[in-house]
């Protein structure tokens, strides 16, 4: 029952659960997103363990790759010094850093 293969499964599962807890307990959004990408890669390892290599490939390309890139881009967008429209309109005294 406690074959080394099963221990590998338990290790993957524990990593998956710890990573998903960390995603939502992390204060920094950027770190959350990086942990989310790491979760995607570990999930694709789980797909390999569950005899689904094609799903693993799709997950690595989409779940970790494209979703990760989209999330990172959004973090950059929300963090950037680009001031939203409404704040531009209100701050006409030149405090905002518009060109």
């Amino acid at each position: 029952m406690n074959s080394p293969v099963l221990w590998l499964d338990i290790l993957v599962v524990v990593i998956l659960i710890l990573l998903s807890i960390r995603i939502f307990s992390e204060a920094s959004l950027f770190k959350s997103v990086v942990l989310f990408i790491a979760l995607g890669l570990f999930v694709s390892f789980a797909w390999v363990k569950l005899a689904a290599p094609d799903i693993a490939l799709t997950e690595a390309a989409l779940g970790a790759g494209v979703t990760g890139a989209l999330l990172l881009d959004t973090v950059g967008h929300l963090r950037s010094r680009n001031v939203p429209y409404s704040k531009h309109r209100h701050a006409e005294d030149g405090t905002s850093s518009n060109a």
């Binding site: 494209v66 890139a69 989209l70 881009d73 959004t74 950059g76 967008h77 950037s80 680009n82 001031v83 429209y85 531009h88 518009n98 060109a99």
Partner: peptide
Amino acid sequence: TMFISSAAPITDDYVRGD
């Protein structure tokens, strides 16, 4: 296209929106 159109472009078009 999802990535390109939702990603922030390099030229700051917030100024244009101003």
